Simulated assay, not measured.
Amino acid sequence: MRTLRQIAAVSGIAFALAAASASAHAEKISIMVGGATKIIYLPAKLTEQLGYFKDEGLDVEILSQPAGVDAENELLAGAVQGVVGFYDHTIDLQSKGKEVQALVIFGQVPGEVEMVSTKAADKFKSMADVKGKTLGVTGLGSSTSFLTQYLAQRAGVSSKEYTLLPVGADASFIAAVKQERIDAGMTTEPTVSQLLKTGDAKVLVDMRTLEGTRAALGGTYPASSFYVQRAWAESHKADAAKLSRAFAKTLNFIATHSAEQITEKMPKDYYAKNKDLYVAALKASMPMFTKDGKMPADGPETVLKVLAAFNPSVKGKHIDLARTYSNEYLSGTATASK
């Protein structure tokens, strides 16, 4: 009996050492987020905070850039293995000959809000009033610029009739409003709630809910997502599946916990001294998240319709939507493409 106990103990130690060794030698995976403190991208940091990457045996580094287009450029340059940004980049990049694939969909709606400066609000009642105005976006070529151009075009205003100004997000966006450098602009929570609290801006177009998104864009619009270069996913299937599982567990956590419970898991610098405001902003945003990370059935077509309406790179091009995303890594059924 003693010998069996000794064997069991030695085996347990060997297993622990092997697991620790495997973890120590796990290849670091860098993921760039297009603004890590934005609530639309909350699953990225929350997954790290909950320990789900480590549970999958992954060594993941979360990095941040102020705009999604900057994160996209880091991915294409090979500086990072993945991006947490908007799904629409996968379509835009395919039109330019780049193969990028979304593996997990975080948001079934953009979570974006077009905010109009309170000082400009009297003469700025809808997107039809953007003529001659300066509109803030996170960056030129970003998803906020895609959506802004589409909303303006849908209201009958061409892109030559207004100015897009890249102002970043969070504090820099708020400063642009306060300094009257922009008349309106597109941003996300918690910036929306901060501007409403101070009274510096009002909501013009709200895409935080399915109802608001369908009214603005004509359908479900999958937005925040985790995407990688297709070649990387196919050559790192195990890692791609582990990352997908980790994010899916986080989305389930969001679906089964309160905004207060989720906020407790986040780093304190994400909400600074405005914890109550952050909780309120998160409550307003939670309906946007998918529960399982899978692509909504009508999503890709809506996004393609929006981009094809104004984006010269996409307009008139054949886009193979099936190659812009995959649900297979979530279910562990991914196979090499033919």
Rank of each mutant, 00 (worst) to 15 (best):
V80M: 08
K28G: 04
E74V: 00
L93I: 01
E61W: 01
I40Q: 07
A102G: 05
G78K: 03
F86L: 03
K38A: 15
A8Y: 07
F15V: 12
V100G: 08
Q6P: 00
Q6I: 14
I39L: 15
R5L: 15
S21M: 10
I13H: 03
D59R: 07
N73Y: 13
G97W: 07
V69Q: 10
V33M: 03
G82S: 05
A36R: 12
H89V: 04
L17K: 01
T118I: 13
A16P: 05
S64H: 09
F86N: 10
I7N: 06
F15A: 13
V33P: 01
L58S: 10
A26C: 11
E99S: 11
P66F: 13
E48A: 10
A26N: 10
Y87S: 02
Q49Y: 03
P110I: 00
A16L: 15
E99K: 04
H25E: 15
Q6C: 04
D122N: 09
Q6L: 12
S21Y: 13
T37N: 11
A24N: 08
M1G: 11
I39F: 02
G82N: 05
A67H: 08
Q108D: 12
V60H: 05
G78P: 04
L93W: 07
G82W: 09
V116K: 03
F106I: 02
F106M: 08
R2F: 14
S64F: 12
A44V: 02
L58K: 01
A26W: 14
A20P: 00
A8I: 11
A77C: 02
V10M: 13
Y52P: 03
Q108V: 05
L58C: 10
L103Q: 03
A18V: 07
L93C: 05
D88N: 07
M115N: 02
S64T: 14
V60T: 09
E72A: 06
E72C: 01
A77V: 04
P66M: 14
E74I: 00
D55Y: 01
Y87N: 04
T3L: 14
A79S: 09
L4I: 05
E56C: 04
A24G: 12
G78T: 08
M32R: 05
I13C: 09
A44M: 04
G111P: 05
L93Y: 08
G82T: 06
I31P: 06
G111V: 09
E72D: 11
L58G: 08
A24M: 08
E72G: 00
P66L: 08
I91G: 07
Q6S: 07
V100S: 11
G78F: 01
S64R: 10
T37H: 14
V104I: 03
E27C: 05
V109H: 00
S64Q: 14
L75H: 02
L63Y: 07
S21K: 02
L17W: 13
V100R: 06
A18M: 11
Q6H: 08
A18F: 11
E99T: 02
I29V: 15
D88A: 07
